[in-house]
């Protein structure tokens, strides 16, 4: 069954800028996401995790970004070589995104009905009852009385509700892969938990794959099947979530797990990461 994975990234390398000033954001990474699987990509700011996520449907502005090598196979087709016309139906329909700041990802001058309906009309023109579909999508993400919310503008909703609307919009087109780029970082912990619970529930119900980008190991335990740990454009460790959490192989992974504050274990100090040490380990 699992002959070809849904997504396969092979030796992907991405630079920003050219010549001497180029920064190598992603340095030849490979990973796969199978059908129905949830993979968490964990790393700090600057590790290249968000760049990787955006590159899946070539959303990075080029220039300054440059795809210098590798391929991204989605259902066996390399998105890096597809033409714009071939790629566009893929965005949203096959691979949908939710981002960190729900407030800035929604257009403030349109109602939420309009914004979700737009996505449905674009990718599922066969749908007749668009309004009913919008209501269903809002209902799916746990918004109570969805009919009453249709006419709301984004600023009338709290951050958590906005993120639910973003998820509803992403799911309205039944994507195969949902890329969630730090979906809870800008939210309160209580809301964070609600959103993560929602994602976990939806994943089970809809059977889609999720690529979860985060800097916080704390939130991957409950939801991810596998974990990919990135550091400065490299993948330093990859494995089943339970294995990685219980027995991290790479010192960086261990450091990332250790720095999450835990309740009731009042250590004298939180463990901070010694980046120089990890850098030294990466040098061959």
């Amino acid at each position: 069954m699992c002959a070809t994975p849904l997504l396969e990234v092979r030796n992907l390398a991405i630079d920003f800028g050219r010549g001497e000033n180029a920064t190598h954001a992603v340095k030849g990474i490979s990973f796969t996401i199978a059908d129905g699987e949830t993979v968490a990509v964990v790393g700090e700011s600057g590790s290249g995790k968000s760049v990787t996520a955006l590159s899946l449907t070539r959303l990075l502005p080029t220039p300054p970004a440059r795809y210098v090598g590798g391929e991204i196979l989605f259902n066996g087709r390399n998105t890096l070589t597809l033409s714009g016309d071939e790629l566009r139906p893929m965005r949203g329909k096959q691979i949908a995104y939710i981002f960190q700041e729900p407030g800035t990802s929604l257009n403030p001058v349109f109602t939420i009905e309009f914004q979700i309906a737009e996505a449905i009309r674009l990718h599922r023109p066969e749908v007749k009852d668009v309004r009913g579909e919008v209501v269903r999508a809002l209902d799916l993400v746990g918004i109570r009385d969805p009919e009453k919310r249709l006419g709301d503008y984004p600023h009338q909703l709290s951050g958590g509700m906005q993120q639910r609307v973003m998820i509803a919009m992403a799911l309205a087109c039944h994507p195969k892969l949902l890329v969630a780029d730090e979906p809870t970082t800008a939210l309160d912990v209580t809301i964070q938990k609600q959103i993560m619970d929602l994602l976990r529930e939806l994943k089970g119900r809809l059977g889609m794959s999720i690529m979860l980008i985060t800097h916080n190991f704390g939130i991957v335990a409950d939801i991810a099947d596998r974990v990919v740990v990135m550091f400065r454009g490299h993948i330093v460790e990859e494995g089943k979530t339970a294995d990685v959490l219980r027995n991290p192989q790479h010192p960086y992974t261990r450091a990332l797990i250790d720095c999450v504050p835990r309740l009731g274990q009042k250590q004298r100090r939180l463990k901070a990461i010694d980046h120089a040490e990890i850098e030294a380990l990466l040098k061959p």
């Binding site: 700011s45 800097h215 720095c259 504050p261 100090r269 939180l270 901070a272 990461i273």
Partner: peptide
């Protein structure tokens, strides 16, 4: 801040 940086700042404050 990232969790890893969060730890550094909390330590610094302490």
């Amino acid at each position: 801040l990232d969790v890893s940086v969060q730890a550094q700042i909390v330590n610094l404050l302490q």
